[in-house]
């Protein structure tokens, strides 16, 4: 897919830069918007952002590599982020992640995000999602699922999102 920012998106981003006295501040918001649109941050997206904000590409690239939410590879349409941190671990999040992986034929022992070959699902561990009272929690794309059981996990997989 070639990298082309629609006029509509560009207008939205231009408006964003007006929120800050220094354009560079809009970097993270640009990257969020571009990742939402294109699914990941490509080298073209980095260069485009740098050009728009009057920066060197390295200034943007170093953000993509620092902030865990930004990714340089494509991920599954349904992105399952299982909370790994203590309260969720106490409530069994490790077995929830394993369940997702097994159901999808992914390697439950791998360290990095796992994506199904058909590109439909990615499963990964993330750190505390600030919903520890309803552990274990799973963020699926933009939706938070709380008190997740294996049955709920199956429902998430069946529903796509």
């Amino acid at each position: 897919m070639s990298f082309a920012v629609s006029a509509q998106l560009e207008a939205r981003l231009d408006e964003l830069t007006t929120h800050y006295p220094v354009k560079r501040s809009a970097s993270l918001m640009f990257l969020h918007a571009l990742q939402e649109e294109f699914g990941h941050i490509s080298p073209e997206a980095v260069e485009w952002t740098a050009r728009k904000l009057g920066l060197q590409p390295i200034n943007v690239y170093e953000l993509v590599t620092f902030y865990p939410m930004f990714r340089q590879e494509r991920v599954g349409k349904t992105h399952v982020k299982v909370c790994r941190t203590l309260s969720c671990a106490l409530a069994g999040s490790a077995s929830i992640r394993e369940h997702f992986c097994k159901k999808l034929g992914l390697d439950a022992h791998a360290h990095t995000p796992q994506t199904t070959p058909d590109g439909k699902f990615t499963v990964e561990f993330v750190e505390c999602l600030a919903a520890c009272g309803t552990a274990p929690v799973v963020l699926v794309n933009e939706n938070l699922h709380e008190q997740v059981t294996t049955a709920k996990a199956d429902a998430i997989l069946a529903g796509g999102v």
Partner: peptide
């Protein structure tokens, strides 16, 4: 302004750097 998944952005001077568009 949205962060992007780094705990250290909660530390106030890290937060400020982040809001300036930096690590």
């Amino acid at each position: 302004h949205r962060g992007a998944g780094a705990y250290i952005c909660g530390e106030e001077t890290g937060l400020i750097e982040s809001l300036e568009g930096k690590r």
